[in-house]
Every structure is written in C-alpha cells, then in structure tokens.
Design a protein around this nucleic acid. Sequence first.
RNA 1: GCCCGGGUGGCGGAACUGGUAGACGCGCAGGACUUAAAAUCCUGUUUCCCGCAACGGAAGUACGGGUUCGAUUCCCGUCCCGGGCACCA
Length: 958
Amino acid sequence: MEYNFGEIEKKWQQRWIADGTYKVTNDPSRPKYYVLDMFPYPSGAGLHVGHPLGYIASDIYARYKRLKGFNVLHPMGYDAFGLPAEQYAIDHGIHPAVSTDENIANFRRQLDNIGFCFDWSRSFRTSDPDYYKWTQWIFLQLFASWYDRKQSKARPLSELEDLFTREGNAGHPCPGDPGIRFDAAGWKGFDQARRQEILMHYRLAYCGYGEVNWCEALGTVLANDEVVGGVSERGGYPVVKKKLRQWYLRITDYAERLLGGLETVDYSDAMKEMQTNWIGKSFGAEVDFEVYRSSEKLRVYTTRPDTIFGVDFMVIAPEHELLEKITTPEQRTAVDEYLGYVGSRSERERMAEKKISGCFTGAYAIHPFNGLHIPIWTSEYVLAGYGTGAIMAVPCGDERDFKFAQYFQLPVTNIIGDAFNGLDANPTKDAILQNSDFLDGLVMKDAILIAIRKIEEKGIGVRKTNYRMRDAAFSRQRYWGEPFPIIWKDGIATPLDESGLPLELPYIDKYGPGPEGEGPLANVPAWTERRLETNTMPGYAGSSWYFLRYMDPHNDGTFCSRKASDYWGQVDLYIGGAEHAVGHLLYSRMWTKFLFDRGWIGHEEPYKRLINQGMIQGSSRFVYRLELRGKPEMGEGRSSGPGIPIFVSAGIAAIDGTPEFHELVTFGVRDILNDPSIDLEDISVSPLHVDVNIVDGMELDIEAFRQWRAEYGNAEFILEEGKYICGAEVEKMSKRLYNTVNPNDLVKKYGADTYRMYEMFLGPVEQSKPWDTKGIEGVFRFIRKLWRLFYDETKGKVWTVEKPTEAEWKCIYRTIKKAEDATERFSFNTGVSALMIGVNELTDLKCHKKEALEKLVVILAPYAPHLAEELWHLLGHAGSVLDASYPAVDERYLVESAKNYPIAINGKTRTELNIALDATQEQVEEIVLADETVRRWLDGNPPKKIVYVKNRMINVVV
RNA sequence: GCCCGGGUGGCGGAACUGGUAGACGCGCAGGACUUAAAAUCCUGUUUCCCGCAACGGAAGUACGGGUUCGAUUCCCGUCCCGGGCACCA
C-alpha cells in the first residue's frame, strides 16, 4: 500500500467538515485556549508561500493545545472593508461587495487545501451588517463616553453632565479646549447648542476641526500610521496637511495605559519598542518667558530645563498663534515672506530635504533668571503640533539648535565647559554645569529636577509629561466602510437610536466625491435627506474588536455576551505581521481598554502573547540576455579571446528595437562578458527575471523557458557543461519579479502535510528567510519513511500488536519529550527535526509495534494532520486523533541509572568514572576522591574544588 | 544620526538557564540494488596536520580583549548585516 496523500487529504478534509471536527463550543467546564491569526484583508492577488506561514504555525499550536486537553478557539474571518477594494471599484467598475466576495471565495479555496482547523462556523466579515451593527454600536458608546483623568478610566457622558450641573468643569478641565471654564451656574445657563459643543470636547469619539493628512489622489483623510514618508501607505500618493472637519478617537487619553499595559503582555522587544516610540512619552517642563515690550507670554516645552542658562534664542512654529502678535513692524515683511515659503512646501518636501530655514521676528523674550534678552525666531523645524509649538534653543546641547545657530551666525553660550568643543552640539546629561547660576557645579541629570522645582517655585512653569501620539483620525471620505450612526440636526451630531442599527451602507455605483468634497454617500439622496453623516469609518474600525466577536459570533442582542468574553478572556496567542505594530495593535488595545472601563468585558489587554511571523522573501532567478552596446552590426560572426565561446551575432538582440530572437548566456560566462579588460567591443549582458518555477535549483529548464513566453520560443542558449545556470538574488516575493511560489502547486505535488511541515522546517517562525523549494524533498522522504513504519508498498500492513522493547520505548519517549518541548516553546523547526529523528530511529530498530506507533501518531497530529488521522484510523481508532490526549512521557525510560562521567583535571579530560545519576554532590566527591587515577593527580594535595556539571562532566580543580 | 535584533560548515538552520559546537534537512562525493532509470538504502562531508589504516593531534561559532576550571552563550571595544524611528525640543 502506497502513501497516497492526494486521496488521504481529500478524504479527511471532507470528513472534518461532515463531522464538524473543528466546531468549538463555549464549554466553561473545560480550560480554554484562544489562538488567533490576524485576519486577512481579501486582496485579489492570491496566496504565495509567505502568506500561510503564520496560519500553519497557529494551526499547529491550536491542535497541540487541543491534544493537551484545552478547549481551543481558533477562528478565521475577513477584514473586508477598506480602500483597495474601493480603488479597484473605481478602476474596474466592479462593486466592492462583488470583488470582495470573489476574493474571499478564492482565498478560502486556497486555505482549505492546506487543512487548517479553523472553526468556520464562527467566521464573519467586517462588512457584514450583522457585524458592523456592533462596530457602530461601540462607536456610539465611545461617542457617549468621556475619559476621567482623575480615575484614569472612561465613564458615561451622562455622569459628566451631572458633574457639570453640580460643580461646573473645574475638576475636569476640557481636554479639547483648555480655555473653556465654567461653574455649575454657567453650565445651567448654556443653551443646548453650547452644551453640545462643550460635550463634544470631552467625547472619546468626537468631531472637530483639525489638521489632517489629506490625500488628494485617494480623495480622503488618512491616519498618521497610514502615511509613510509624506506619501500614502496605499498607492504612494502625496499627502498634504489640511484643516477639515473630522471624527477622531481620543486615544491620547489612553497613552499612559497603553504604555503601562505593555508590561503585562508578552510581545517581542521590537514590538514593544515600536509602540513605545509611537506613543513617545517625554518628561520635562513648560516654562513661560515674558516677551519684551509686550503683555504676551511665550510658553515653551523642554525636557532639559537644566540647560536653561544655555538658551541663546527662542524658536516658535510658523503656525504659532503668537507669531502674528509679536512680530515687529521692521520684521513684518521678512516674516510674511518666510511664511509664504513655508506654505509653498509640501509635507513631502519638508521630509525629503531638511533645509535649515527661519526668520527673526524682531521680538525678544526675557530670561526668567538672568533677565537677558533672547531673540525670538520662527522656523519650520519647530512643529506646531507638539508640546507648545515653541522651544527654548540651547545650541551647545542640541544638534538642531546648534545647526540653526551656525547657519544664522547666532552666538552660542557654553554651559558645559570642555564637554562642548565648539564644533558640534553635545546632548549629554553627564556633564557638569557652568555659567548656570544656581545650577553651577551640578551634573546635568541631577539638575533637571532641581531646575523644575525652582521654575515651579517661581511660578513661571510646571512639570509636564508630553506624548508624541496624536488623537486618531477616524473618518474617511469614502464609501466602502462602516457608516457613522450619526444624524446632523441643526449642526449638532446626534446619535442614531440603537434600534436603528445597523445603519446599512446603501448600494451605489458611482464612487466619486460628493459636491463639497465629502464622501460618495453625499451623492445618495436618501442618505442626505436624513442628514446622515456622509463619512465612513476607517479600515481599522472593524478590526479593533473582531477578536471578541468570535467568542459569541451569532449573538444579535449584544456584541459579545459578558459570559462568553469572561470564558474566553484574552487571546492567548496572537500571530501576525509586524507591520501592524502601531496601527491595528494600538487601536484594538485602546478599544479593549474602553470596553473594559465601561464594564462590557473583564480584561483590558486583548492579546496576552503576540508572535510576529517573519517575511518569506523570494529567491529570484535571472537569465542573462546578450545585447549590443552602441551601433548594432548585424550578420557578422564574432569570436574573442581564449576560453570565451563564439557567439552567433545574428541572434543578438538589437538594443533599440524588438529583438528578433533572444540569445541567453549562462551565469558562469556572463561575467567574462562584463569584464572590461576583455575587449568584446559592443556586447553586453542584461539580467532578466525568470520564473523561479521553471528553474531547478540554479539550472534552467530550457524547454519550459521556451514555452514560458512566446517571445522566448526560439531563444538560443550559451551553456556551461551542457547546462544553463541562472543567477540568483533575494528580493521581496512578488508576482512582478516572477519569484512567487504558489502553495497549491506544492500541495498538489507533495501533499499538504509535507508542505506544512516543510514551511515550518525552514526556520524559526519569527525569522524572515528566503524561500527555497529544494529542501521539501527531505520532508517528503521523511513522511514516506514514516508511512513505511505502518505499511509496506508490496507487503501491505506491517504493524503488529507486539509489545515494544525497552529500546523502542526509550526512543518513543525521547521523541515525545523533544517534540513536546519544541512545540510548547513555538520552535516548530526543531519540532519537525525531533519527529524526523524519532522516525529514523524507529526505522533502524525495525519497530512496527502498535503501542509505540500510536503515540507517534498523536504527536505527529499537529504537524501532519491528514496523515495522522489516516494512521490513527488504520490503527483501529474511530473519530479524530485530536480527541486523543497528548501522550505523557514515562520518565523512567529517559533516565539511565548510572553513567560514565568524564573526569577532567582543570578542564582536561583524563578518565571516566561510573556514577549513579541521582548521586549528590557529596557522594560524587567521595567517589571521585576514591578513584586511583585522581589520587595520582592530586598527589596527596586536596583539590580546590570539584565541579559536577549537569550530568555532563566532573572537573577537578587543583 | 538614534533605538532594537542578529553574525555558527557549501546552504537553511540546531545547541532549553555557560558544560562533548555543527542536531535535523538540503547540496555534494562515493557505494549497494537495477539491463537501465526512478524509488530506496548505506558511507563520508568544519578546517588543518600525521598516517596505508583504525586511530590520533591542533584550531574553530564576524574580529580584538576580559570574566570563568570551562564561553556560540556573560562583560567591554571594533566591523558588518537586517529591522524600526527620524526635525517630537
């Protein structure tokens, strides 16, 4: 009986569906484990071998945990709303719902081939009205909540209104506009419109005017994490700053908890650091400087108040409100000119070329301690959006300030003595302060707090913590997203009644912007008549809480019952790409904290452990085409120096026109042609990507190449040793580079089990690595070898019910131990190795005994599920192997009672001694000292110490 | 520039808290079976030295130092690669 993976895999995939093998119930009597993959955005591109990597890893772990007795939740769904589908609709006239359907069907077909244990009965898409009903509902709760900074938690807005009625807002300053202050009477005196305006400043989901990243090409606003290097992440279109009415999430209020929460979760250091950087917490002080001959005060933010005596000038952002007021008449023209220049520069230009620029305002600030007059400049290197939009410049300690001072030839005060060399700023905190009045002689880092205290005493400033993170833009001028359940009544945003949810997205077939640049919904009369909000929510809305919906996917009374979320709790293991570090991961953490604050769920961090799978890179292959340099001279034979082949020049492609036919030169000869020391006149070679699937290792399949594309039908080849050898390079895996490998092709050729194991065998899941199909044969061989423990191709069944021998048990238990350890610590490549070693040993032992093989099948099940089911079945078991339990290791078979230990003197091995494994340190010393050889070494002297190392070696130190 | 990772055979990679470096697989070389091929199996495969050989010896985990009886693992410095951030005061 032969191993027929095609039949076996098909059979079991059908059985799993028929038997509902992977259906999970919320069963509080059993311990739970939640394994989650980041759900995919169903793009039209199709899968390559890089995509299923994380899914295979999570699948193995989910199956392993199930065998270990856990009730495992392992769901899958689709992040279906978003820009690309709508972009596709605009370009091809296909409705996003239709293309999304197609892409999902295609995706599902590809996934099903690989044999995952997802519980598809819990699946959904974020674009399902049954799902986004609850996305809208959560939005309404955010809208109806505020963040109590004293209690550090979200509370219902009604409680805030009660507070206002009783005591005004003195206890809870307005986060949106600190200038708004009122007492109880004041609140009672406000009309409804004013009250709503004030409340809007407190809401966790709020609408306001603000600078946003506007992308003209996409016709929408983008969140900070969707803008990379001044252009849109999707499509790479230019992005400009624009003031617009937008919805926001007040994520900044959660900054501290998002930071603190990182200490309670198990993410990689890199991931934690990315989030920490994004949040960008800094500690320092805000200091007020009086402006000379003005009643205005200039407030700056600094993390280095210790350097306050090194201030040589002040810089305010070009957008700073004070700029207008303090600019002197003499400087007016210059400042206006400068503002014109700043306005002309796009965000992208600013990022690309960081030119030093700026303009003196004519005004001076007065130093609060020494009364010196400090010139106030404006420059775009100071950002309006951070801190107070103004800084005190200390050129001797800050590189940017120093460069600015140099450029404009401003004097530099040195407050750190020798630590400043006059050529570069020195940002140290360890230098000793000079020229610094009451801070003289102090080490800078100690002076920080002393300076702050003095500033506070003097009443000219306060300590201040700042965060770089901004509130998240939450609206998009687009169609394919969740509609906001908001009606505008007389300019007041009014929530839709819950009974009106879901507010369904209407069908449209034109995706252009509305009459005033709003989203396409503004063109739907039925929509605008109801005065519904025309923006839609961004892509991350639906993905911010989806992990909760899987727990209770069909509940139409609530987003997820408390009972269900209490049972399943946190996602125990979350697997996905690192690209979501600051987007999805932060938003979903915030939403979870919010739902926790309001008591709808019982935990405030969504993901207990996060693993970022590495990228699978493509290993591209190249062929080298001969080309003519300069003037083509056709029809002439050409030969050259010794060892260099003769080329048929008639075949050489003319550089300017379509080649008549292609002449391709093998890798080994290509370099000779490019060598300038050899005169080949006008021939050169250019590398061309060739489909990796028609290259075996490095050798090109010439026939397949000729058929690959029509233009190569009559290609000629210059070979080495009768072969055409390709060049290679590691690049991103992409269709364009012809280096993609389709998992389905591998599944067809080797079976899903081999494919899965090979993908794991390649290396650690977290690590990025280039794909190389070559080694899959090794795993395939292993699987067939395993099969032969049960069945012989000619003799048929070979397994017996004989009792395994001592040696066979030893082998089995050793294998279980290794496989279990590896799987537990997520090291699936060594897990596969452990299985390989086990099977090799059993083969050598000619062990075909059922009792031993049974255990092998169970530990195989996470890795090669189809084969394990088949073998389990053949050994006479009914039902799924996953309902077996993971075999316990019988330790007795692992330890030997005694062992020959090498004994070394000062590390040099001299002899061996048989010592019981459970011997204590004292017993070991006794035995060692009694040994004749050792006594000879010691020659009557006592040893310094005897080191007994981990069952490995005994070292006598003299 | 700053902050994280990481440098181990021809290749992918093992070595869990310092304890026999190179597991497992690929590739390569040789061999067995076969008329032949496929498949399968066996042997060898870090480098250098000695020898007919079994065996033996030395060096070796990017480089230079250190701690330790003992370092791929810990510490300091240098170089290189990958990733993230980049006017955040």
